[in-house]
Design a protein around this nucleic acid. Structure first.
Lengths: 198, 198
DNA sequence: CACGTAAGAAACACTTGCGTATCTTATAAC
DNA sequence: GTTATAAGATACGCAAGTGTTTCTTACGTG
């Protein structure tokens, strides 16, 4: 189970810390927050609990550090395929690949935090997002308008971001990856008809 | 903490079972799934763990029983206002009032349960729902078709049930009740345009 | 009213994780 | 090379929950 793989040298400082965060992520991914214990993480990283306690005071603190590193290591790019449909599909596929797991996790991990602070997913997300930044789908729609693909009319934010809402819903409902058919349904049977009708 | 409140009589059979399920629900509501232990539930119900073990094999089984009772104790009636829009609005308002809490719970709090059992929200819902029953929105659409309000064409289940999906998403994101404006947006800006365009 | 069923109390051994203390030994810096 | 530092191993008492066993006693059935 140890991730040191016969490595005899003793790791230190930043290298050790990175290795621990990687191990922590793997434990979180495989065992969930309930299995996210210093015991399990130390074992997986091939080190011992005191080493973890010297860096983080407890599981919450380590969790934040773990998610922060993970989030920053996997950015999502806004696709530019030349068509509204292509962009939407590519975007959702990418989100599926890169964010499905994190989305499920976040709703669990942060729940304890929500309980304590009385805040919500939405508030936290708003606090984290850079203000005034357009969502990927807003950019995608804007480009389609510029190409003349769809009419240049005002659209409610809820309509523009609909695919991602439904995608997230799907992720939460199934606890995992969203099959391509579902993504196609969302785009072809709901979103495009809605955008094109105007 | 015991819910027996000076009750000296010894409860039996169905009465005892109901009392335990009520206690279980309170524990789940107050302490979350992490605190949903036989120990805590037995204490809250004013009984002992063996009594619980005689009925359910473990926390997962008790959880399903608890949610099923809760779900069925607050049935949603399918509104019949005479118009598609009125029915949809009334249905979502009712869902908001009666289901917001349990939905939050099932989707956010129970990930640990899903992990333990290897199941998902969708499966848990199936275990709780009475089988073979049409969803409220399916009935509402059917009636609208019968009235001649909308065309009699085949519609994907995803389209028919869209309002509830979006409603649920809203509940999860806000961790609570959904404001009426959001419900109106879902119905007027998304669902009705989609249904009426055909 | 007698009796069988099951409620409820208490204890069992066991497991997992916590947070800390102690000690060694490798290694980076000087 | 010597030395300060921190890695890594081991062990501690503590707490909470598990699943089970045993025993007593209340209560509904007949």
């Amino acid at each position: 189970m140890s991730s040191r793989e016969g490595c005899t040298t003793r790791r230190r400082g930043a290298a050790l810390e990175t290795a621990i965060l990687e191990a922590a992520w793997k434990v979180l991914r495989d065992q969930g927050y309930a299995g996210f214990t210093f015991e399990a993480i130390a074992a997986r990283a091939g080190t011992s609990r005191p080493v973890l306690y010297r860096r983080w005071s407890g599981r919450q603190e380590l969790l934040v550090a773990t998610l922060r590193q993970l989030w920053q290591s996997k950015p999502i790019e806004i696709p530019d395929t030349g068509s509204l449909r292509g962009d939407a599909l590519a975007f959702l596929m990418q989100a599926d690949e890169r964010r499905a797991r994190i989305i499920t996790l976040m709703s669990v991990e942060l729940h304890e935090y929500f309980r304590e602070t009385g805040s919500s997913f939405r508030e936290l997300r708003a606090a984290i997002r850079e203000p005034g930044q357009a969502t990927a789908l807003e950019v995608i729609v804007e480009r389609a308008v510029a190409r003349g693909e769809i009419a240049d009319v005002a659209r409610p934010a809820r309509v523009v971001n609909l695919p991602f809402e439904l995608f997230r819903q799907e992720v939460i409902m199934t606890m995992g990856a969203v099959p391509p058919e579902a993504i196609h349904e969302i785009v072809d049977e709901i979103w495009l008809p809605l955008l094109l009708q105007g």
